[in-house]
Write a protein that binds this DNA or RNA. Structure first.
Length: 405
RNA sequence: GUGGGAUUAGCUCAGUUGGUUAGAGUACUAGUUUGUGGCACUGGGGGCCGCGAGUUCGAAUCUCGUAUCCCACCCCA
């Protein structure tokens, strides 16, 4: 038997696919309300794009990409995240030169060659939004509120963590400070942290090793080293969230895994889905457009991991809908099929291809969750009528065929 | 990439110290005497016991390998 690749799942059972489309529909609805529009970008891009955006030091680019040479000998990769492609499209279409604001949302498959576990797949789906051209921290706050709105509509509880990663003014000196600090304790930190010191020193603060954590208690904190602008923006962000009743925790160790983030960073986590608990994450990336050869353009965005959200969604109750047609005499079967076809122009409708007794038709109608069960028997055949029962109200009546429409 | 646990019917799981034809619940399907659904009752279909070797007279059961899932690390959505 041929099986799907490791970490690549089908979404086919009814429950799961209903949840999936329900998520896409409500997230799309909310994004449209916020003035974003849909964008689709290719799954496959030049590898360089991800190297330059996500960052070569990141695990994602370093070891998790599906990367290969195509038949034209181009170095290409399946996208491991959505932002890079959107930024590329933004620049390629010269929107960076057109000025104004551009707000996009997208959803689709992302690929990372990781060891799978619950909530971590090799092909997974994200819903994300990107906003270009707005420097104001109010936009950051609006992004967070948008995630909060989507989660609220889906009935999903969460904790929100925020942090500021500083900008090109205050981040580099801080980084240097931190490296010096790490040097001072380098003998006692774990192997991972020693590696992180070289690749991405900020990440050591995130280390889950208890010994490291206790050493880092006295580490310089970025939040105390922010420049005036970053600090006042971070304060504004908190003020707006407070004013709009969005609860948050400040997590000074929150470091986004992708190199392009600056200033506001945020992550929504759930305590109900296991260790892969981040359900949405994002932040500001003011420098990314110019890293990719565009005209400097402030930008902010987020992405949500759809698979991680799926089981948290509380689905609205499924209501009875549509029609089920059945015949009790074989002479009426073909007529029933035509009736069903007509009804399908406007409503959900299905029918039984066999002549069966009333009880069986009612059973079938109930099973497909139809609202109305419509049956033609010998009595109805004689009078050109049809028997209709409302399975919801348990009322029934005999109608002339024409009255059914 | 590292360490640990699991894998038996579509799904959730039993299966004795290795011993005849591998079970239950649920789901599916048909019927309960010919025009009233959800319930109940009675039948029925459905298993390379993850895959491959090995030990044995005999393996779902023991050993090894392998794949996948799950858990932790790592990382992240």
């Amino acid at each position: 038997m041929i099986k799907s690749l490791r970490g690549m799942n089908d979404i086919l059972n009814k429950e799961e696919s209903q949840r999936f489309t329900y998520f896409i529909n409500t997230a799309t609805k909310v994004a449209l309300r916020y003035g974003f529009h849909h964008i689709q970008t290719p799954l496959l891009e030049e590898t360089t794009l991800f190297k330059r955006s996500v960052g070569e030091s990141s695990d994602i680019v370093g070891k998790e990409m599906y990367r290969f040479k195509d038949k034209g000998d181009n170095d290409v990769s399946l996208r491991p995240e959505g932002t890079a492609g959107v930024v590329r499209a933004f620049i390629q279409n010269k929107l960076d030169r057109s000025g104004g604001t551009h707000r996009f949302f997208y959803h689709g498959s992302m690929f990372r060659y990781e060891r799978p576990q619950k909530g971590r797949l090799r092909e997974f789906h994200q819903f994300g939004v990107e906003s270009f051209g707005v420097e104001s921290v109010y936009e950051d706050a609006v992004m967070i509120m948008m995630v909060a709105d989507i989660l609220a509509e889906l009935g999903i509880g969460y904790r929100l963590q925020i942090n500021s990663l500083g900008c090109k003014e205050c981040m580099p000196p801080y980084r240097e400070n931190l490296v010096n600090f790490i040097e001072s304790v380098a003998g006692n930190i774990c192997e991972d942290c020693q590696r992180r010191e070289r690749t991405n020193p900020i990440r050591v603060l995130d280390c889950k090793n208890e010994k490291c954590q206790s050493l880092y208690e006295t580490a310089p904190k970025l939040i105390n080293s922010l420049c005036e602008n970053c600090e006042s923006d971070f304060n504004k962000l908190k003020t707006i969230l407070d004013a709009n009743n969005i609860a948050y925790e400040i997590d000074t160790n929150l470091v986004r895994g992708l190199d392009y983030y600056s200033k506001s960073a945020f992550e929504f986590v759930s305590d109900d889905i296991g260790s892969q608990s981040a359900i949405a994450g994002g932040g500001r990336y003011d420098r990314l457009v110019e890293f990719l050869d565009g005209r400097p353009t402030p930008a902010v965005g987020f992405a949500m991991g759809i698979e991680r959200l799926l089981e948290l969604i509380s689905m609205p109750k499924e209501l009875r809908e549509g029609y089920f047609f059945g015949a009790m005499d074989s002479e009426a079967v073909e007529f029933i099929i035509s009736l069903t076809q007509k009804k399908r122009k406007t409503d959900k409708a299905s029918c039984d291809y066999r002549a069966r007794n009333l009880k069986n038709h009612l059973k079938s109608a109930d099973k497909v969750n139809a609202r109305y069960c419509c049956v033609i028997g010998s009595n109805e055949l004689e009078n050109s009528t049809i028997w209709v029962k409302d399975l919801e109200n348990k009322t029934e009546q005999v109608l002339n065929i024409e009255d059914l429409y």
